[in-house]
Structures are given as structure tokens and as C-alpha cells.
Design a protein around this nucleic acid. Structure first.
Length: 684
RNA sequence: GCCGACUUGGCGCAAUUGGUAGCGCAACGCUCUUGUAAAGCGUAGGUUGCGGGUUCGAGUCCCGCAGUCGGCUCCA
């Protein structure tokens, strides 16, 4: 049977026509993907819906679709095959290395190895070289079905693979990575065959499918980083050494990917936070505990002030609660039961001892609060509640402390001290649906105010291992959330098992300026706490009823939201958020008084403006404030003074010269009031 | 918490095989500055994250701790 088609002359016209279409074999000839698809970019195919190698034999009745290398499936196959090449290279260099798993992941792949010495970056060069050699050799990936016994015999030196073979029989071979190895209906080994000698040079237990030849990997791959990873994802298991790589159909696409990473690195909020003097993490205070500098403080306050305006305009009542509480409260709320690991350890206070060291007064445990809801429940419970008060919406910028593991801390996005914009809404059961819809609308509208406007929703449903309440409650609430989500018209992604133990939730995911998604707001039902806290209200008929509780965080944490906005805007904030909104630069010092007058008008109108009277030259000042991301520079010299005007310079270097002062002041005020993002000269 | 890498003045970086810390920016001072991204000269600033050890000698080597980064696990 004809096999290799890579590198031969192909009929691209036919390939183009065939691409993406289902075809049915005509006549009676037995065929395979090579015969069927002549387009070189076709690397695999879907046969009756299943991904298969091109070498798979096709029958007359098969419905076959081509899988091109640039499709999602094709990229995954490319990356998976590249992972195999990496593993082969590793074992060529270090025959002692034992294989873990090597699946494709977003934008790349990884392969886990058990090696005596962890990999370092220095290992990459020889590994890449070896991979190049394997790729140029044009090894064929050849699928071979084996029995369990055969597989065990062939892989006797690969203990991890043997473990996977053992798992296949069991019920728990469900993990995404593992299923790449043994997830198929039958056990298969992929042989890497030297096309010249026909000799098998390497092999791996694998479900496939794979590229027809290593040659198709080309030069669009790169090794990225090393890491350790627990075998089969459990910290109870030993750690393997993982190498991450990326692979693309062409070198250009690889370069584009690397450029995207660089763009993201440029926006890194930790870097910008330092450069723009916004915040820091003093070692003296402790890991994951941020301090906001004056400029960061302005941004943070603007974020909060806008939020407060929105809350008040939407029927919320602002409350305030302490940061520390007796342990009993978190026993009532069950946090000490479910989440003690994530809480700072107790402070044991008020115990007294006599001279003999005997306890004379019982002390008690106080905890830093990891959540605000128990405190809000106490406010609800502070007096009798009537159905007339519902929905009762309590909101707070509540600072909480969580003992995150040291290895998980990361800039402002994962901290130990954070301020949640936290709201708890207590409603009668028949108000749930309307309130949820209202909340979702409120959340989206508010996020748009911050300049985010590309959203999708995620519905997190019951984790069968970890939940309270009845199945009926969950089903009803989940269905309500689903309806509200569907009514919003936004894309809805299911997150099965992702809910917290006390209720299902909807979360809003926002895409930022460079297409990354962040989980922001959550709207979450809670059947548990109203019961634990014995919350109730007097219904119209005088009976006592239990309210339903809705947790609603809009920004997540202020710190994390700050980081997201900082990266979204790459430090160049919309006018209303910018720490310095206007800097005035005189062409020479003698024009400074003229600008002082204009700036005085601006500051008295609430604009954050100043005149740069340092003894730098004008060009230097322009540079300083451009790199400092000040959105508006006002420049004046002889011409503007004579004309009673002023000249604007914008962040991208565009200018608007000779603007009458009254007009300039008014335009600036308007841009702030309307939350404009001003990066270039505005069109009048 | 686990694995690995890293930690030099406010920031970004240098310091041959271990020989006793330099540069740029920022800061400060002086002189200069007339139209849109870096004027010139000078001054000050570091017990090289912290604590031990090896050595005649440690920023360089070893051990411990802390912090940061990349992953894993976790994320109410």
C-alpha cells in the first residue's frame, strides 16, 4: 500500500476544494488518508467523527473529513507529535530518563520525565539540536495495536507507562493528560520509523493520532521552560521533571506567538507597578501583602469611588465590618470546617495563668477573616426583618486575609491580604430569579464603565463530592442561573463540578485588550448560610420564612482587578483613572506662570494637573511624562501665550495646537466625566 | 507546601579561573534651556537579600533561612 506522501508534489487546487468538506469514497477501492487528501496541510482526518492518522484504512461507508495543520485539532496533533520528538531526544541524550506523559496543551505541549537530575535551561540547546535532527530525518509515526501483555513486555523499562496500562482497565483513566496515552478503545504504540532503513528508532505508548512524519514539525517549535509536576497530578505522588514547549506550523507563527508573549510581558502589572510607582510588596510586611503608593492609591480610589456610586444608585446599602473575629463565627459559618487550611492560624487571646502556670482564665481564638459573609449575616440578624425589606442588599469593600500557599502567590493577582467588593443580597425565594437577572445586568454594566466590554459567562455546577443541601435545591437554582445566563445573550460555558459546596454560581469572564480572559464577577447562590445562621424574615402572612442568600463580587478583589486593568491598559489608563491627568510643559521657564494659571483652573475643577517646572529641557519633559503615561500634556510658548491658547500633546505623539484656553479646560473636564480613553488627538 | 532558577545602590544591568564592587537611568547641585521622546558638568548613594561555613582572601564555592520568578498542587 502506498504510504508516504510528505514532500511530494501535490495538487493544491484539489486540496483547497476538499478542505473542510466531508467526502464519501466513490467506487469500491480500499483507500487511506494519503490517497484521499493531497493537500499537504492535511495532517490527519476525522473518520466518522473520530480523529485518525492519515494512514488509517478507509472503507466505502466512512464519512471522512480532513484535519489541516492549522485547525485546532491539527495544531494539537502537531504539538503532540512534537512532544514525542522531545521525549525521543531526551532519551537519546539520557537513556536513563523514564517517560511520564506528554500531551498537547494550549499553545504547546509538555512531556514529563523521571530523571536523576532536574533539567536546566542549559539542557535546551542540545535537546533542540537533537530534535532538529529527528525532525530532519523525517521519521514516520506508525500506529500499532498491541495487547496488554505485549505492551507490558515492550515497555518493561517504563514504569509510568506500565502504571497507565494498569489504569486503563480501571475506571479512573479519565484525566486529560493520561487519556492521551491510553484513552483510546484499544492500546496502541506509536513507532518512530526511520524512512530510509525502515527501522523503528523509538516508540511510545500513545493513543494518537500523529503527524505522518516528523518532518512536518519543521522549525516552528521551541522549548520554553522547565518545571516539576506531580505524577498524575497528585501531591501524594512523586514529582517528575516537565519540559514545556510550543509548536506552530511555521516559523513565522512561532515568532508571532513569541511576540505575543513579549507583549504580555511588557504589560506585566508587577513591572508596570514598579515603573509607574503604583504599589510594592515590602519584604518587611510579608509575602502577598501589598502597599499602594500615592499614584496607585489614586487609581484604587477612583476604582472604588465609581463602584460606590454604582452601588448607591442600584439599591445597595453600604456596611462596614472588622477584620478579625472570634472563632465561633467561623464555626457557625462552617469555614473553620471546610477552609481552615486557607485561613491564617488563630490568635489565642485572653488566657490567664497563675504563678504555677495553671490556667485561671479560659482564653479564646480569634481569626483574621477570610470572608465577609458571616459578618453580613450578623447585620441581617441584628434585628427582625420584614419581607418588605427584601431584597436587602448589603455591600462592603471588605478586606480579608487568606493564607495562600507560598508557591501560589503572584503579584497582585494572588495575595494574602485582599479587599473584596463584596455584596450579600437577601431575597425571598420568589424574588431569586428577578434579582439574579438584575445582578447580572448590574455587573455587566458596571464592568463596561471600567472599559471592559468583551464577556462570556461560566456556569459552575455541583461538585458531587463536596456539597450541602438537597439535589432538588441545586437543580432548581442551577436551572434559574442557566435561564438568567441564556437571557443575557452572552456565550455560556459550562463548568461542571466547579461550584463551591454551598451553591451554584455564574461567573463573568472578561477578555482584555490582548485577548486574555480573566474571571471577574461572580454571582453565587447560597442555600447553606441562611440555615446555619438561622436567618429569617416575617412574611406577609405573618409566618417566619428563610431568605435565600446571593453572594455577589463584582471586581473579585480590588487588588486583582487593579492588576487586570493595569495590564488591560498597559499602564495608559483612561483619563478618569490616570493618577496624573494633565502635565503642563512650558516651552521655556518664562511661560510657566501662564500655564500655572491654566493648571489652577483645572485643579479647582478637580482635575489632577500640574506644571513641570523642573530644570529639564522641554523635550526631556515630554519624554518623561510620555514614558510616565500621563494622558495629556499641555504645552505653551510664545505663540500660545500671545493667542490665549494652549497646545495638546497626546500619548501617541499627536498634537492639537492653539486651542483656546476655555475650550481646552472644558474639553478636559468632559473627557474625565465621560471616562474617555485618550491615547491620540481627539477629533473636534 | 513541592521542584527548579534567581536575588549586586530607588530601577535596569556589569564584574576573567575566588584577589577585595562598576555602568546607565533616577536623585541632588551648578551652568544651560523659545515649540513636541534624553543639554552639559559635577556630587552623593552598595558591610553584593539575611545568617553561618570553606579559604590568606568570597559578589563569585558550600549549608541554612527569607524573598521573587516559572511550574505542580491549591484557589471559599
Amino acid at each position: 500500500m502506498p504510504r508516504r506522501r510528505i514532500g511530494r508534489t501535490t495538487d493544491l487546487r484539489r486540496g483547497d476544494r476538499v478542505r473542510g468538506q466531508r467526502t464519501r469514497l466513490e467506487g469500491t477501492a480500499v483507500s487511506d488518508g494519503f490517497a484521499r487528501f493531497t493537500d499537504r496541510s492535511v495532517v490527519a482526518m476525522r473518520v466518522n467523527g473520530d480523529l485518525k492518522d492519515l494512514a488509517t484504512t478507509l472503507t466505502v461507508d466512512d464519512v471522512v473529513e480532513p484535519v489541516t495543520i492549522d485547525s485546532a485539532d491539527g495544531l494539537a496533533i502537531l504539538r503532540h507529535s512534537t512532544a514525542h520528538v522531545l521525549a525521543q531526544a531526551v532519551q537519546r541524550i539520557n537513556p536513563e530518563a523514564r517517560l511520564g506523559i506528554g500531551p498537547p496543551v494550549t499553545d504547546g505541549f509538555y512531556y514529563d520525565f523521571d530523571v536523576a537530575e532536574p533539567f536546566t535551561l542549559e539542557d535546551f540547546k542540545p535537546l533542540q539540536k537533537e530534535m532538529d535532527r529527528i525532525i530532519r530525518q523525517g521519521q514516520r509515526f506508525v500506529r500499532r495495536v498491541v495487547t496488554e501483555d505485549e505492551a507490558r513486555a515492550e515497555l518493561e523499562n517504563e514504569p509510568y507507562k506500565l502504571e497507565l496500562i494498569g489504569l486503563k482497565g480501571g475506571s479512573d483513566a479519565g484525566d486529560a493528560g493520561e487519556s492521551v496515552e491510553v484513552g483510546g478503545a484499544e492500546l496502541t504504540i506509536y513507532d518512530n520509523v526511520d524512512p530510509k532503513s525502515g527501522e523503528t528508532v523509538w516508540k511510545d505508548l500513545c493513543r494518537g493520532p500523529h503527524l505522518p512524519s516528523t518532518r512536518m514539525i519543521g522549525n516552528g517549535f521551541a522549548l520554553m521552560r522547565v518545571a516539576a509536576a506531580y505524577w498524575r497530578g497528585s501531591e501524594k505522588n512523586p514529582q517528575l521533571q516537565r519540559i514545556y514547549g510550543t509548536a506552530w506550523p511555521t516559523k513565522d507563527e512561532l515568532r508571532a506567538y513569541q511576540a505575543r508573549l513579549e507583549e504580555a510581558a511588557k504589560r506585566d502589572h508587577r513591572k508596570l507597578g514598579r515603573e509607574l510607582d503604583l504599589f510594592s510588596f515590602p519584604e518587611e510586611i510579608g509575602s502577598g501583602l501589598a502597599v499602594f503608593h500615592p499614584r496607585g492609591g489614586i487609581i484604587r480610589n477612583e476604582i472604588e469611588n465609581y463602584m460606590r456610586e454604582r452601588l448607591i444608585a442600584n439599591g445597595y446599602e453600604l456596611v462596614n465590618t472588622p477584620h478579625i473575629t472570634k472563632g465561633h463565627l467561623f464555626e457557625t459559618s462552617q469555614h473553620l470546617n471546610w477552609y481552615k487550611e486557607g485561613m491564617f492560624p488563630a490568635m489565642h487571646l485572653d488566657a490567664e495563668y497563675d504563678a504555677d502556670g495553671e490556667l485561671t482564665r479560659q482564653g479564646q481564638d480569634y481569626y483574621l477573616k477570610p470572608m465577609n459573609c458571616p459578618m453580613h449575616n450578623l447585620i441581617y440578624r441584628a434585628r427582625g426583618r420584614s419581607y418588605r425589606e427584601l431584597p436587602l442588599r448589603l455591600a462592603e469593600f471588605g478586606t480579608v486575609y487568606r493564607y495562600e500557599k507560598s508557591g501560589t502567590l503572584s503579584g497582585l493577582t494572588r495575595v494574602r491580604g485582599l479587599t473584596q467588593d463584596d455584596a450579600h443580597i437577601y431575597v425571598a425565594p420568589d424574588q431569586v430569579k428577578e434579582e439574579l437577572a438584575r445582578q447580572l445586568e448590574f455587573v455587566l454594566e458596571t464592568l463596561r464603565g471600567y472599559g471592559l466590554n468583551d464577556f462570556y459567562l461560566e456556569l459552575s455546577t455541583k461538585d458531587p463530592e463536596k456539597f450541602v443541601g438537597t439535589d432538588e435545591m441545586w437543580e432548581e437554582a442551577t436551572e434559574t442561573l442557566r435561564q438568567v445566563a441564556v437571557d443575557s445573550g452572552l456565550e455560556l460555558v459550562p463548568d461542571p463540578g466547579g461550584a463551591a459546596f454551598y451553591g451554584p454560581k455564574i461567573s463573568v469572564q472578561a477578555r482584555d485588550a490582548i485577548g486574555r480572559t480573566w474571571q471577574l464577577s461572580t454571582v453565587q447562590l447560597d442555600f447553606n448560610q441562611p440555615e446555619l445562621f438561622e436567618l429569617e424574615y416575617a412574611a406577609a402572612d405573618g409566618s417566619r420564612q428563610q431568605p435565600v442568600m446571593i453572594h455577589r463580587a463584582l471586581l473579585g478583589s480590588i487588588e486583582r482587578f487593579f492588576a487586570i486593568l493595569l495590564e488591560h491598559y498597559a499602564g495608559a489608563f483612561p483619563l478618569w483613572l490616570a493618577p496624573e491627568q494633565v502635565v503642563a510643559i512650558p516651552v521655556a521657564d518664562e511661560y510657566a506662570p501662564y500655564l500655572e494659571e491654566i493648571v489652577a483652573r483645572l485643579t479647582s475643577a478637580g482635575v489632577r494637573a500640574s506644571v513641570d517646572r523642573s530644570d529639564d529641557r522641554m523635550q526631556k519633559k515630554i519624554r518623561t511624562h510620555t514614558t510616565g503615561k500621563v494622558p495629556l500634556q499641555l504645552i505653551a510658548g510664545e505663540q500660545d501665550v500671545a493667542g490665549g491658547s494652549v497646545s495638546f500633546r497626546f500619548l501617541d505623539g499627536t498634537q492639537l495646537n492653539g486651542v483656546p484656553v476655555d475650550e481646552a479646560v472644558e474639553r478636559i473636564r468632559r473627557a474625565i466625566a465621560e471616562k474617555e480613553l485618550v491615547l491620540t488627538a481627539w477629533a473636534e
